[in-house]
């Protein structure tokens, strides 16, 4: 349903690792009530790339139990297996190799190595080690990172395919807390920079796009909205609006200097 179109037909596509996508909104598949809600929300979001986690299978479970892959067939969506929940480079690399095997050799992955269970802040030392190993092993690595421009540059030099700084803590909905650091990362990056984590509502997504981000990745902001499907639609529109505003180029800010939009002449009684 949200399957990618041929690159040649796309206007202003998001290009990641040589593949073009129509949508600049990437979504997670966690925290929904059930797979129907997952699917409805993701279709409404227009997202083509969806993140999934790799976890131990329940053994001896009922074979007819529905699975995420039935709700979101890999033929219709680009899967982005993640290493969420991993705290070392080794765990993350093993997890993403399993994800690649699970998805028949699919090279695209989201690297995430956490450093703290309370803040879910990334451990950048482990992230850098894992990124080097994964790139050497042929993966296309989209990497979750702190909003440190020096680390972002190192990840780019290692050969990642997208830099994904947090806007605020994972699942916090606190929005874009440090647009200035995002700007520093955006100014130097030659790769797509996507905000990953922290978006709470539609305006946050628009702000990320207006800053010049190539896209936004979110999960909780949609899944934990009162009406996830409606919020998914709001996020699609917000990402599109923010992108259009970025491309259009905003007017300069004029502090304490008003400028009327209507003619100053030709007023009646003049």
């Amino acid at each position: 349903m949200n399957a990618p179109a041929p690159a040649s037909t796309l206007v202003d596509p998001l290009v990641i690792a040589g593949r073009a996508y129509r949508s600049r909104l990437l979504v997670g598949t966690g925290k929904y009530r059930d797979f129907n809600e997952t699917r409805d929300a993701i279709v409404a979001s227009g997202a083509e790339i969806v993140t999934v986690a790799i976890r131990r299978t329940n053994l001896g479970q009922n074979a007819s139990e529905p699975s995420l892959l039935d709700a979101l067939p890999p033929s219709e969506f680009t899967y982005l297996p993640n290493s969420a929940g991993c705290y070392t480079a080794d765990e993350a690399v093993r997890t993403l190799r399993l994800g690649r095997e699970l998805l028949d050799g699919h090279k695209l992955c989201k690297l995430e190595v956490l450093g703290d269970p309370a803040s879910l802040f990334p451990n950048m030392r482990e992230t850098l080690v894992a990124a080097e190993k994964l790139v050497a092993d042929g993966f296309d690595v989209m990497v979750y990172t702190s909003d440190d421009p020096i680390v972002a540059r190192e990840l780019e030099q290692i050969g990642c395919v997208a830099i994904m700084p947090l806007a605020s803590l994972i699942g916090s909905g606190m929005g874009i807390l440090n647009p200035w650091n995002l700007r520093l990362i955006l100014e130097q990056a030659k790769l797509p920079v996507l905000v990953d984590a922290g978006v709470g509502t539609a305006s946050d997504a628009s702000i990320a796009m207006e800053l010049g981000c190539a896209g936004v990745l979110m999960n909780t902001a949609i899944a934990k909205a009162r009406e996830p499907v409606r919020m998914a639609r709001a996020m699609r529109l917000a990402v599109e609006a923010g992108r259009e505003a970025f491309l259009a180029g905003r007017m300069p800010r004029k502090y304490y200097e008003a400028s009327a939009s209507s003619p100053a002449t030709g007023l009646i009684g003049s």
Binding site: G30, K31, R56, T57, L102, G171
Partner: peptide, 10 residues
Amino acid sequence: LEIVGAVGGG
């Protein structure tokens, strides 16, 4: 043995 599958996640 580790046997894994894909589950919902961000």
